[in-house]
Design a protein around this nucleic acid. Structure first.
Length: 994
RNA sequence: GCGGAAGUGGCGUAAUUGGUAGCCGCACCAGACUUAGGAUCUGGCGCCGCGAGGCGUGGGGGUUCGAGUCCCUUCUUCCGCACCA
């Protein structure tokens, strides 16, 4: 208990100043009273005792061989940051723990594990500053997390703990990477297929008949040509098909962090972590061919029970659009064509120019000497604009003419080629066919540069702006004149295909995911290089362990930190033991076939995997966490199959949750796992925001701060400035002046202008963060009120999905409830005392109401409403002076998922074997106890309730109507009139229409 | 701009199918026990009104015997996306 309990404010002590004996008495009584109240419900002892019991007895170890149905409840595992947990973090864990405990009571074999996503940037940034190895700080942070988690009484099966940064774990992350490297995506099979199949095909039939998701620049060759190729040429061709591949691509480079970032790690042109500027840069990078799965990732969303907003975010991110690609040949150039993607191919006769992104690869060649100055100037100008500026400035029209022209494939019309930064290099082909009559951006561009605007539909009005309508009949459009939209589109596509100038196409906004990070604290990529080409290391050499380095910084020559590792190179085995040809594409082209010259070994890949690698499959590792032969045994995967309930934050919508679905689909394709979607049901818990408190420093005439502070309600009368004050020295927005003076030396002599004898603080909702002094720590709450109170209060705060500010005001209500619950089992002297015998009707009614209510609430994740229902039940039982063993024993079971410690204690006081409550049977609801024979009908006149009348429920509606109309109380309202109509809904309402 | 979610007492919230709006808790007020309370118990507590009564779920309109709930419209807040061809 807090020591402040024994202190008294100076004002309070004032009356005793003259009388020391009285003062002593004052303290004596305070302590006595305190001791009395502490005597009843000793949460501290109880909670410690049971937490220890659970740990020692492995109470929550999930069974691997069970005849019970399985249920898998998963939390998003945390990154163990140095700041520890604040009160917002456990919200989702508490909800999932209640659910897991509830499912156990319902007879399920529950898998409820926890672990740590322990690779990541903050530990490395800290290492750069302090020189401490990230493994050490991570270890220390994990210890803090574990201590904090244990305090809350979760029913995790800790025997299955995983840490992504542990070599036993990342061995399998590397292993999955290898499988991806050894696979390609066969569109015909619509699945990932072994690279051996592709090689086999090349050897027998060449590239003909392959329909793969691959790089754009793959070659066409016959089987003979393939066999004639050098080993290196074969390897670099294969790389264009692999699901993880190395390719020069435009990446988000963050100079401040010294690494590339994935698209989902960049927000508004700056890095999500740290907010550093990000620039586009071309780099050789590992990528994951997630685009191969775009359609399946999209379709799968319809089969899973996830929040609609989250699914919508993923759909958005995938960004499917249906249209056509069209090739425009270039005037005076027979080789090159400009390919565009359009969703309105029907508007092709309205094309009056073509626009390329300034970064488009043909820009230099297409620029005529006369236009070179203008184009160069424009490119320089756009390059100067940062990503942010470019996004912010969407109104200004800008661009430049290249001097070249393309030919419209359908009507042969010559139109100019422009460049403009409203065309994005990263979307579609980086080129658009501009139809100013139908597209507003094209329209503004045409107006600005005085280019023609051709209407193509008779219903189109292009006087003031573009008209994107699809209504009406086509005009100025040759082969589709007079047709309507649907027909016209089909006709144009058919014609384009016929003349080989285009085809129907589906485009996705999603890009392949960059997979390398130029950082230290991540999984090493299990790859070495020979002749500049990447090869996998032997599977038997896994895990490829992170080497020690002297500094966590890039090398002098700009290589990633791993470049500092001394003697870190790969030495293939002379006769490597191999199984299934994992490491080498074919026997013939083995890079490890003894042609290694010198003994220095080959250089490893120096970048590491991104943060999302380890989290993209971890739920499988929990199924069989100790397995050193496989990432999880087939048997375990077959039994646990998928996650039934996943709880976590929506901030992972387009990162973790998308990548996990991708890897899962891949693992399914190669037969390692059995389900298409890993997380059947997902719930986003809301964010807990901080609730900051402020004090108001009085300013003097010159605007300088004084040491006088004005209570919030009086600030209008004074000139003040607001200062954040630690929320832990404020209760119900009343400042604890004594603690405030002690908070910081500068406030030791502070003076106050009070209102009604109190200093009231101002309030604002902000992020929960150290710098706002609004962080509330679960440890403090648990110390003061206990874990059971903390658990129930977090649920009581409101619906799980809703974001809300943390406010400790009100926690007393939950604390009182638990004490009241405790008292049901104890007499005035706090001695355990229950009676045997038949429960009363009223007691049974209360019990069965709560049995049903909690069941319904938990099934729909409405935990806040069950907490109030528990309060109602305990209030009722207290009023009934209930201490019946039957009733109370069942109450204990129902409450145990919410408040497990107190329930364990009472369960064993009731004489049950310790620890068995976790696997007790949830009480069965019996509706008979809730049957009523009377109902107090609300009687309303014209829809407005006037009185209540108790009427037997055996009466049918006409009899009720008769009874009601005969009632003198109702007669009074009727005022002699005859009702036009009387509506009687049995057991609900009576409405009289006058 | 597009998409989504949400607006109910002083505060957090409840009302599962259209059927008594405000359950439960906090705060507040009054009382009891008390020399002494930050304990406990009892009662009160949407707004206006002495009362009878009236009004009331962001605003306006509609459907209905009956609307917090359904429909239209509008405002506000939060979240996501944003030159996507």
């Amino acid at each position: 208990m807090e020591d402040t309990v024994y202190t008294a404010s100076p004002q309070r002590l004032q009356p005793y100043a003259q009388n020391p004996t009285q003062l002593v008495n004052f303290y004596y009584f305070r302590i006595l009273i305190r001791a009395n109240t502490v005597m009843d419900y000793q949460f501290k002892d109880i909670e410690q005792k049971w937490q220890q019991f659970w740990a020692e007895n492995h109470t929550f170890k999930a069974e691997d061989n069970s005849t019970k149905p399985k249920y898998y409840v998963l939390d998003m595992f945390p990154y163990p940051s140095g700041a520890g947990l604040h009160v917002g973090h456990p919200l989702g864990y508490i909800a999932s723990d209640i659910f897991a405990r509830y499912k156990r009571l319902k007879g399920f074999n529950v898998l409820h594990p926890m672990g740590y996503d322990s690779f990541g940037l903050p530990a490395e940034q800290y290492a750069i500053q302090t020189g401490q190895h990230p493994a050490l700080t991570t270890e220390a942070n994990i210890a803090t997390y574990r201590r904090q988690l244990d305090l809350i009484g979760f029913s995790f099966d800790w025997s299955r703990e995983v840490r992504t940064s542990s070599p036993d774990y990342y061995k399998w992350t590397q292993w999955i990477f290898m499988q991806l490297f050894n696979a390609w995506y066969d569109k015909k099979a619509d699945a990932a297929v072994s690279i051996d199949v592709l090689i086999n095909h090349f050897e027998t039939e060449g590239s003909a008949g392959i329909d793969a998701v691959c790089d754009d620049d793959v070659q066409s060759f016959t089987a003979d040509e393939w066999r004639a190729m050098s080993h290196n040429d074969q390897q670099s061709e294969l790389l264009k098909y692999r699901l993880t591949y190395l390719r020069e691509s435009t990446v988000n480079w963050c100079p401040a962090l010294g690494t590339v970032l994935a698209n989902d790690e960049v927000k508004d042109g700056v890095s999500e972590r740290g907010g550093y500027p990000v620039e586009q840069k071309k780099m050789m990078q590992w990528s994951m061919r997630i685009t191969a799965y775009a359609e399946r990732l999209l379709q799968g969303l319809d089969t899973i029970d996830w929040p609609e907003p989250l699914k919508e975010m993923q759909r958005n991110w995938i960004g499917k659009s249906t249209g056509a690609s069209v090739k425009f040949s270039i005037e005076n150039d027979t080789e090159k064509v400009i390919e565009v993607f359009t969703t309105r191919v029907d508007t092709i006769y309205g094309v009056t120019f073509v626009v390329l992104a300034p970064e488009h690869e043909y820009v230099a060649e297409l620029t005529t000497p006369e236009q070179k100055a203008a184009i160069d100037a424009y490119i320089t100008k756009t390059k100067k604009k940062s990503e942010l500026d470019r996004m912010a400035d969407t109104k200004t029209v800008s661009g430049a003419f290249t001097g070249s022209y393309v030919i419209n494939p359908l009507n042969g019309v010559k139109v100019p080629i422009w460049i403009a930064d409203y065309v994005l290099a990263g979307y579609g082909t980086g080129a658009v066919m501009a139809v100013p009559s139908g597209d507003q951006r094209d329209y503004l561009f045409a107006k600005y540069f005085n280019l023609p605007i051709i209407p193509i539909l008779d219903s189109q009005n292009t006087e003031k702006e573009a008209d994107p309508t699809k209504e009406g009949h086509y005009i100025n459009s040759d082969i589709i004149n007079g047709l309507e939209y649907k027909e016209a589109t089909a006709t144009v596509v058919a014609k384009l295909e016929e003349i080989g100038a285009g085809k129907a196409k589906i485009n996705y906004r999603m890009r392949d995911a960059i997979f390398g990070r130029q950082r230290y604290w991540g999984e090493p990529v299990p790859v070495y290089f020979k002749d500049g080409l990447p090869y996998l290391i032997e599977e038997s050499d896994l895990p490829l362990v992170l080497p020690e380095i002297d500094k966590y910084l890039p090398t002098e020559s700009g290589e990633p930190p791993l470049g500092r590792a001394e003697g870190w190179s790969y030495k293939p085995h002379p006769n490597p033991p191999r199984e299934g040809g994992l490491n080498e594409p074919t026997g013939k082209v083995s890079p490890t076939g003894g042609d290694l010259e010198g003994a220095g070994g080959y250089e490893y890949e120096l970048s590491t995997m991104p943060g999302w690698a380890g989290s993209s499959w971890y739920w499988y590792r929990y199924m069989d966490a100790k397995n050193d032969k496989e990432f999880a045994s087939k048997k375990a995967i077959e039994y646990w199959k998928d996650v039934d309930l996943y709880i976590g934050g929506s901030e992972h919508a387009t990162g973790h949750l998308l990548y996990s679905r991708f890897w899962n689909k891949f693992l399914k394709d190669i037969g390692e796992v059995f389900v298409e979607e890993p997380f059947k049901k997902l719930i986003n818990q809301g964010m807990i925001q901080g609730r900051s408190n402020f004090v108001y420093r009085l300013l003097d005439e010159l605007g300088r701060g004084t040491n006088m502070f004005v209570s919030h309600g009086l600030t209008k009368q004074y000139n003040t400035s607001a200062i954040h004050v630690d929320v832990n020295i404020v209760e119900n927005d009343v400042l604890d002046i004594k603690k405030f003076k002690a908070w910081r030396p500068e406030f030791a002599d502070a003076e106050f202008i009070l209102e009604s004898g109190k200093y009231l603080c101002g309030v604002e909702v902000e992020k929960m963060s150290k710098r706002y002094y609004n962080v509330v720590n679960p440890d403090d709450i648990a110390t003061r009120y206990g874990a059971d109170t903390l658990r129930m209060y977090e649920m009581f705060l409101g619906p799980l999905e809703q974001s809300k500010p943390w406010n400790t005001n009100g926690i007393e209500g939950v604390f009182k409830f638990l004490r009241k619950f405790w008292k049901l089992f104890h007499n005035e002297q706090n001695q355990f005392s229950v009676t045997d015998g038949q429960p009363s009707k009223a007691e049974l009614k209360s019990l069965h109401k709560i049995i049903r209510k909690v069941e319904e609430d938990v099934e729909r994740f409405s935990f806040n409403t069950s907490v109030s229902s528990f309060m109602i039940a305990v209030n009722e039982l207290t009023d009934l002076k209930c201490n019946n063993r039957d009733i109370l024993q069942q109450m204990v079971i129902i409450l145990s998922p919410y408040a497990p410690h107190i329930c364990e204690e009472l369960w064993s006081l009731l004489g049950n074997a310790p620890g068995t409550i976790s696997y007790a049977l949830y009480p069965k609801f019996n509706p008979e106890y809730l049957v009523e024979d009377e109902f107090a009908y609300p009687i309303s006149i014209n829809g407005k309730t006037k009185i209540n009348l108790s009427i037997s429920l055996s009466l049918d509606p006409p009899a009720v109507e008769q009874f009601v109309l005969a009632s003198p109380d109702v007669q009074k309202y009727l005022d002699g009139k005859t009702p036009k109509k009387v509506i009687v809904v049995k057991g609900r309402i009576v409405n009289i229409v006058l």
